[in-house]
């Protein structure tokens, strides 16, 4: 598949190092008192890591076609619907 074997290898190792670094970063960030933002930071780092894995290790970027991306986006969209509409109930339970 890869036209430039060495460049893909470099990329893979680069992503690997970044992922490990992000893991350290998220543990460190959790030790800071950021108030409400602790969760946001943790999730942002996790999402960044997930995107790296999906794009480069799962080859969503480049080689893979649009349809796979569509499947991923659609699944996440429906997950978002589940979370958001459930929370629309939980966040507004108070009445009268």
């Amino acid at each position: 598949m890869s036209a430039h074997p060495s460049s893909s290898l470099k990329l893979y190792f680069g992503i690997w190092i970044t992922l490990l670094a992000c893991t350290g970063l998220t543990v460190w960030a959790a030790s800071l008192d950021l108030g409400r933002f602790n969760a946001a930071v943790a999730l942002t780092i996790a999402t960044f890591k997930a995107i790296l894995v999906a794009l480069f290790f799962m080859h969503l970027k480049g080689a893979s076609e649009k349809l796979s991306k569509l499947v991923v986006v659609a699944s996440l969209f429906f997950l978002l619907i589940l979370l958001a509409l459930s929370m629309s109930d939980y966040a507004t339970r108070t009445w009268t």
Partner: peptide, 10 residues
């Protein structure tokens, strides 16, 4: 990992 291990860690 962050969802389970890193709630309110500081």
């Amino acid at each position: 990992f962050p969802l389970l291990y890193l709630i309110d860690r500081h």
